[in-house]
Design a protein around this nucleic acid. Structure first.
Lengths: 215, 215
DNA sequence: TATAATTTTTAGCTTTGTCTAAATTTAATT
DNA sequence: AATTAAATTTAGACAAAGCTAAAAATTATA
C-alpha cells in the first residue's frame, strides 16, 4: 500500500467516526486539502483493491478490510506519538507532524515491539484510544466539558481538537491530561465557563469547552 | 529532498568510501538494482541541486553539500539501528531493512532527541561509525581479521558485510561485537584461519575473515 | 416540475521516477 | 589507427498521483 492510499484510508476512517453515513468526495478533499477530482481517482483505486465500498456519486465507506488497514495506521500513529512524548520528551503539540511520517513505516514486528516497549498504552498523548494488534479499541466513556453543568467536576481525559494552537493554549492555561476541572459557573449569555483547574480559576469560551473531554 | 534522491546520495557516499575515485553510472545502477539510464536521469537532477559534481560520461562525486546530506542520512540510519537493537531488542541482522525506511523521516529535532535518548552512541550495532549532528565522524583504527597473523589477538569491533546471512552466521558461531578473537593458525593453502572465540576453537574461511574487523 | 446551484466525475495534462531501445561516447583490442 | 566492445546517455513510453477545465449527475429552489 502506498503512502497516499494509506492517507486516504485514514481520512475516511476519521470522517466515519464523526458522521457514520457514507463519506462524500468533497469531505475527503477538504480534509486532505486536495481536489475532488484527485479523490475520485483514488476512490476508484481503493475500490479495486476492496478497501472501500464506492458507488459513483453516492459516497464511500470502508470495507472490513479497509477499516482494519485504517486502524493499523491509526495504531502506528498513536504509538509513535506515545514514544515521542514519553521517551523523547516532545510536548503534545509537536508530535502530530512527525507521527504522520512514522505511521507509514512498514513492519508489523516493529510496531508490536514498540507497543511492548511503551508498556502497551491504551491511549495516546491526546487521550485518543490506541487500537491493539487486532484492531480492537477500548472505548472510554467521556463527555465534552461544554456538556457539563455548574458544580460538576471531572478529570481531563482527552481533547477533540489536536491542533498545535489549541494544545499550546491548554499548556498556557496549565490544562493537561489528568487535570481536575470543576465548573464554577456557566454563563448562559455566551455559554462560556468559569472553571477551576487545580487551584486556579479561569474563564474559557464555549469553543474551548467544546474541545476538552472530561470523565 | 525526495526518498529517491536521498537513496542515490547515500549510495554514492558508500561507494566513495570504498574507491575514492569518481563513481561510475553503472556502479550506482548495480548497487541500487536499477538501470543505468535511471541513474543518469537522477545524476542530472542532483547536479542541478548542487549535491553532486557530474560530468557526462566521466562519473560523479559528492559536493560538500551533498556529502553532508549523505552523512545526515547515514546518521539517521545508524541511530535508528541502535534504537531497534538496544531499545526494542531486535537482533543485528533484522534492523537494516527497517532502518532503510526510518532514515527518511524528516525532523532534525527528532534525530537529535533520539541521539540523546540513546546516550549519543558513536557506533551502530555493526560497528559502523555514527556521524554527529555536524557530520563529524570518529574513526576507529581497525583491521580485517584476514590481515592478522598467527598468535595475534584482538576484539571484534565491526563487520564489513552487514548482510543478514553473514550476521546470522556470526551469531551461530557466537561471534559478536566485543568478542575476543585469537589466531591459532593461518592455513597458507587456502588462507583460512583457525581461531579461538571465547573458549571455543573454530575454523573460518578467508572470505569470512575478510569481513570481520578487529582492534 | 423546471431550472439553478452544487457536487461529482471525466478528460486531458504535468511531474517524478522508472523502463526499453537506440544512439553516442569512451575504452579495449587487433 | 581502425574496429570492436563496453559504458553511458538520449529519446520516448509508462504508472502514480496530482491538477484544471469541462461534462454529467444530483440536489435545491423557485
Amino acid at each position: 500500500m502506498t503512502f497516499s492510499e494509506e492517507n486516504y484510508l485514514k481520512t475516511i476512517y476519521h470522517l466515519t467516526a464523526v458522521s457514520d453515513a457514507d463519506i462524500s468526495t468533497n469531505a475527503i478533499a477538504e480534509k486532505m486539502e486536495t481536489k475532488a477530482s484527485s479523490v475520485t481517482d483514488m476512490l476508484k483505486k481503493l475500490s479495486e483493491k476492496d478497501l472501500v465500498n464506492y458507488v459513483k456519486y453516492q459516497g464511500v465507506s470502508l470495507t472490513e478490510k479497509g477499516k482494519l488497514a485504517a486502524k493499523m495506521i491509526v495504531r502506528k500513529h498513536r504509538l509513535w506519538e506515545c514514544f515521542l512524548v514519553e521517551k523523547l520528551d516532545f510536548s503534545w503539540d509537536e508530535v502530530h507532524e512527525i507521527a504522520e511520517q512514522l505511521e507509514h513505516i512498514k513492519s508489523e514486528k516493529l510496531i508490536n515491539k514498540l507497543d511492548d516497549f511503551l508498556g502497551n498504552p491504551t491511549e495516546d498523548p491526546h487521550g485518543d484510544p490506541i487500537p491493539d494488534a487486532n484492531g480492537r479499541i477500548i472505548k472510554v466513556e467521556k463527555q465534552l466539558l461544554s456538556e457539563f453543568e455548574k458544580n460538576q467536576m471531572g478529570i481531563c481525559v482527552g481533547v477533540k481538537d489536536t491542533s498545535s494552537d489549541f494544545l499550546k493554549y491548554l499548556d498556557k492555561q496549565e490544562i493537561a491530561l489528568g487535570s481536575q476541572i470543576e465548573i464554577i459557573e456557566k454563563e448562559s449569555f455566551d455559554s462560556s465557563f468559569r472553571i477551576r483547574v487545580g487551584n486556579k480559576e479561569i474563564t474559557v469560551s464555549n469553543k474551548i469547552a467544546s474541545n476538552i473531554y472530561i470523565k
